[in-house]
Design a protein around this nucleic acid. Structure first.
Length: 359
DNA sequence: TCTGGGGTCCTAGGACCC
DNA sequence: TCTGGGGTCCTAGGACCC
């Protein structure tokens, strides 16, 4: 493998601010200035889901994404609670992404509200990149009425962390020579791929900041975290050579459902499974994939979660196996504890085109 | 506080093959 | 008869991200 390491990259990360809530405010101007929470139905504090997006007004009450919706309701019962309209967010997202794509040589959409732009060949330095960032913010605001935050750095890792730095609506530039100082005071969980568990594991080693992680003994990290350990250390040093990848392939398609109340009747669970199977099937047909492996997921009332999977002898485009094999895998879980969630996933995907010829 | 739904990637043991 | 080594697939679980 040969990398052009002498070539300094300039990478931009664009993150739409409170995206779901911003789209709702855009189509219902009367929401402007009010606390808006997009997510599950709060049901007067008895709802089961979580907050998807809280706008900045509702964040003043302590509401955050990922928080149980019932808790959000208690924090601010007068907030406007709206259901997630993913189809609409996707339509708006597509328009924004088309704008962003124009500014980059290489473009990678990370999720519905985030993208990386490699602008190395279109700018001579970070100052010029910042001007491009400002132009992007103006265009997204004028054409779609949405605010975005931008981070600019020598790689994806730094750009991504930088974009969070001055939310909402800011631009943060971190040049190579400032990377070390910029990262060193952060908590490890602010790095991509380090969550609460890993952060706790690092704390056991006496590592509380990214700066300390960057200096840590690689052997010690290897023993504690396996091959991931040394990678954490590289991240902490701000090293990331991963390219802005134009496209990546879908690996699996799944759907899951949390029951309003935990259930014990097998018929109810089987009925839910069949519904999931037809939704997964629809998605596979729409995207043109055959599948090989079926995985079901069960979560009991106490949150204990299991998966069971089975691979077919060869890949297939026939949906009936989702239901049949799914039901077979589900059997052993029924008749015991009450069930909170059921999920169904198809993996081992191959494009349908080409398979039909072999079949 | 009582935890959604869509995903990806990694680990690890065992089967199986050469 | 005292037990190789590499590769790949399958399965279950877990951490993590948005």
């Amino acid at each position: 493998m040969f990398f052009f390491n002498h070539f300094m990259r300039i990478i931009m990360h664009v993150d739409l601010d409170a995206f779901f809530a911003a789209v709702e405010e855009r189509r219902k101007p009367e929401l402007k200035g009010r606390p808006v929470v997009v997510g599950a139905d709060p049901k007067e504090g008895r709802g089961r889901g979580v907050v998807s997006t809280a706008n900045y007004e509702s964040r003043r009450y302590g509401i955050r994404s990922g928080m149980p919706i019932a808790r959000a309701y208690r924090l601010c019962p007068n907030a406007v609670f709206l259901p997630v309209d993913f189809a609409e967010y996707e339509r708006v997202s597509d328009k924004v992404m088309r704008i962003l794509r124009n500014y980059a040589e290489k473009f990678e959409q990370v999720s519905v509200d985030e993208a990386f732009l490699d602008v190395s060949g279109r700018t001579k330095d970070f100052d010029e990149a910042k001007k491009i960032g400002e132009k992007i913010q103006r265009e997204v605001m004028e054409k779609e009425g949405l605010s975005c935050s931008i981070g600019i750095g020598p790689n994806k890792l730094v750009a991504k962390i930088a974009s969070r730095h001055e939310k909402p609506g800011g631009i943060t530039v971190v040049e190579s020579k400032r990377v070390k100082a910029f990262l060193s005071r952060l908590k490890p969980s602010e790095l991509w791929g380090i969550g609460p568990k890993t952060e706790a594991g690092l704390a056991e080693l006496g590592i509380k900041t990214v700066g300390e992680l960057a200096e840590a003994d690689p052997q010690m990290l290897l023993e504690k975290f396996g091959s991931l350990g040394p990678q954490y250390r590289l991240m902490a040093q701000g090293i990331d050579e991963s390219p802005v990848a134009e496209e990546w392939e879908v690996k699996s398609v799944g759907r899951e459902h949390t029951f309003e109340k935990d259930v014990e009747e097998p018929e109810v669970v089987y009925a839910a499974l069949n519904k999931l199977a037809s939704r997964v099937c629809g998605e596979l047909e729409e995207t043109g994939f055959w599948y090989k492996t079926i995985t079901i997921k069960i979560r009991f009332h106490d949150f204990e979660t299991h998966t069971h999977s089975k691979s077919l002898p060869r890949s297939t485009g026939e949906c009936r196996f989702l239901e049949e094999v799914g039901a077979e895998l589900l059997g052993p879980f029924l008749g015991g504890k009450k069930i909170r969630l059921i999920g169904l996933r198809a993996s081992g995907l191959v494009p349908a085109a080409g398979q039909e010829k072999l079949a």
